[in-house]
Amino acid sequence: GPIILETYRAIADYGKSSKYELNLKTGDLLEIVEKSPNGWWFCQRESQRGWVPASYLEPLEGPDEMEEPEPNYEGELYITTKGYTAAEDDELTLGPGETIEVIHKLLDGWWVVRKGEQTGHYPSMYLRKTGEKREV
């Protein structure tokens, strides 16, 4: 049968920052081709195709029902592959090669991570799973 793609609606205007992205106008309807865990979704709108930030989209049916995974307060061990300097109050600043615990894998690509006493958002594209079990 035909492949039915999910339709999402843009909740804000977005101006693309690199080629292969799409500009968005509030209310635009897009079909989702691929949901990357780094928060960039590959979408199509009429004849155009390109990447869009997932945080600017909501499902057309049931806007409050994003299929977001539950938080895992035990944490999953990941290593930062790249440093990032917090630009917002709720983000963490980390260098490359730091081991952290991922608590919540948000669809917008900004995962909630824990490092010691600190908790905040970090770009998932700068994280790699360690494959180790957390020490209890």
């Binding site: 928060g39 960039w40 590959f42 930030p53 709720d90 958002h121």
Partner: peptide, 22 residues
């Protein structure tokens, strides 16, 4: 190629639209 996602982290949602956070 076009199938490769951008190499920079996606923007955070506009503050007033930010979804509920833990």
């Amino acid at each position: 190629s076009i199938k490769e996602p951008p190499q920079n982290p996606p923007p955070r949602p506009p503050a007033e639209l930010r979804r509920k956070r833990p």
